[in-house]
Amino acid sequence: MARRTPRRTATPKGLDDASACPCGLGRPYGECCGPAHRGQAPATAEALMRSRYAAFALDDSAYLLRSWHHTTRPAGVDPDPNLRWTGLDVLGSTQGGLFDAEGVVEFRAHYRDGGTPGEMRERSRFVRHDGQWVYWGPILT
């Protein structure tokens, strides 16, 4: 089977489909998180989490809101012009597969805020709503 060349479709920050996806899997954006950003539902909770990280990195607020559960979704998401997301580490996940109704993904997201490095760590809950994975929110302990 011949490998298809990714299309060069622009994203909110100008990343094209052939560029490396910000989620860190090492795949081209057009074969990784790009399809989710354009409306294809991610198959697993981890795939949704990665696509949401990529959306944060690309300032794609519309996708972030669409992929958030309607009962926990904020009215809006305003990108911070001083914040640049620089890497993602998935630390673990439970459930969240093709036949699950819920899943948890723990991750560490790296960023630079005005040039100062930082990281955030979260255990996120994902649920299926209308047959698609959506972000419910952080698990507070």
Rank of each mutant, 00 (worst) to 15 (best):
S19G: 15
G24W: 01
G24V: 01
G24F: 03
G26T: 08
R27L: 15
R27M: 13
Y29F: 13
G30W: 08
G30L: 06
G30D: 10
E31K: 05
H37F: 08
R38P: 03
T44F: 06
T44S: 15
A45C: 06
A45R: 08
E46Y: 11
A47W: 09
A47H: 13
L48S: 03
S51I: 02
R52I: 06
Y53A: 04
Y53I: 08
A54D: 06
A55F: 00
A55G: 05
F56E: 01
L58R: 09
L58F: 02
D60C: 00
D60A: 09
S61P: 00
A62C: 01
Y63G: 05
R66P: 02
W68S: 10
W68K: 02
H70D: 13
H70T: 14
T71Q: 12
T72Q: 10
T72V: 05
T72W: 06
P74Q: 13
P74Y: 03
G76T: 11
G76H: 11
D78W: 04
P79W: 02
P79G: 08
P79A: 11
D80C: 02
D80E: 12
P81R: 06
N82S: 15
R84L: 11
T86P: 00
G87R: 08
L88P: 06
D89H: 13
V90W: 04
L91F: 07
L91T: 10
G92P: 00
G92Y: 07
S93G: 14
G96T: 06
G96V: 02
G97C: 04
L98K: 07
L98R: 14
D100K: 05
A101V: 06
E106A: 13
F107C: 13
F107Q: 03
R108E: 12
A109I: 03
H110Q: 09
Y111G: 02
Y111S: 00
R112S: 15
D113F: 09
G114N: 04
T116E: 15
P117F: 00
G118R: 05
E119S: 15
M120Q: 13
M120D: 11
R123S: 15
R125K: 14
F126C: 06
V127H: 05
H129Q: 12
D130Y: 06
D130R: 15
